[in-house]
């Protein structure tokens, strides 16, 4: 029995009502970000709490793009996050495959050590890293950030990739190896295509991690030429003022690449994060 039309309508309304509340709460900060970014300076404080500004303007975007180093910070962020995502994913694929498929001496200890690196806050290692990188000339450089991010991403990315490889039956690459493939070829032609959702999910994880990271970006790189956008955002907050408008506009712009990235990968991501949940 599905109940009368009335009860069904009530159930339906409650169902969607709850979803609506959730979506509204989740998206409100984002809405505020966009709202402030398009509110002209002269009414920003006067109508600070109004849900809709009485006037729209894109002056903050013009300020950010035309009168600041933001495009440079952006470029830096894309370079750092992109290379970090690619490098971490490739390395994690290699190590995750090894952990998934091979038994070797010291495997237990290596896995343990990798877990240990995930256990303490990064702040602890900043000082030694700063002094090491200073000596190596890796401060104020994008390479330094890429190395740090990649290194810190690898343990988790490895575990992630390992779990995806664990989900692929060993039989498949054995069949390929009997069919005449080398292990590497079997990996590239059979295993990698099947773990594509996992590879994309791992890359997405590493990309967003690097995209929003601020601690190392702020401490290692002080010159504008090697700053990433989170550091750039801080420039709008000075001792005297906080320039909300441009800061929000920059924030909105910073969201765009991440949104594009996730839009492109979402098909794989949903598969990836739910893969193995149901035997299929």
């Amino acid at each position: 029995m599905r109940g009368s039309f009335q009860t069904r309508t009530i159930k339906w309304s409650m169902h969607y009502g709850v979803l609506l509340v959730y979506v509204a709460v989740a998206l409100f900060p984002l809405y505020w970000l966009v709202k402030v970014s398009i509110t002209p300076d002269d009414i920003l404080y006067k109508q600070g709490t109004d849900l809709l500004p009485s006037k729209l303007s894109f002056e903050h975007y013009a300020t950010v793009i035309g009168k600041s180093d933001f495009l440079l910070f952006f470029r830096n962020s894309i370079i750092v996050s992109g290379i970090t995502a690619i490098a971490s994913t490739i390395l994690a694929m290699a190590s995750g495959y090894a952990f998934s498929r091979f038994a070797f001496k010291g495997k237990f200890w290596i896995v343990g050590l990798m877990l240990v690196t995930q256990m303490f806050p990064l702040v602890i290692v900043i000082t030694p890293i700063f002094s090491i990188f200073g000596t190596l000339g890796l401060t104020n450089s994008l390479t330094g950030l890429i190395i740090i991010y990649t290194a810190f991403n690898i343990p988790f990315a490895t575990f992630l990739m390992q779990s995806f490889f664990d989900g692929i039956p060993k039989d498949l690459e054995e069949a390929a190896m009997i069919d005449g493939a080398t292990r590497f070829k079997a990996f590239v032609q059979i295993i990698a295509p099947l773990t594509l959702p996992g590879i994309v999910a791992t890359a997405g994880f590493c990309f967003t991690g690097a995209w929003g990271e601020i601690l190392f970006a702020l401490l290692l790189n002080s010159s504008a030429s090697a700053s990433t956008f989170p550091v750039g955002l801080l420039l709008y907050s000075t001792r005297a003022t906080i320039e909300y408008g441009p800061m929000m506009a920059a924030g909105v712009l910073a969201l765009i690449p991440v949104c594009i990235f996730f839009f492109l990968i979402q098909r794989y991501l949903v598969q990836g994060l739910t893969a193995g949940a149901v035997k299929g």
Binding site: P169, D171, L172, E174, A176, I178, D179, T182, L194
Partner: peptide, 19 residues
């Protein structure tokens, strides 16, 4: 290596390449 032995194998799981 398996690929150099010129043998074919049928697995219990069939091990067909899903893609």
């Amino acid at each position: 290596a398996p690929r150099d032995r010129d043998i074919a194998m049928v697995f219990q799981s069939y091990a067909l390449y899903p893609h």
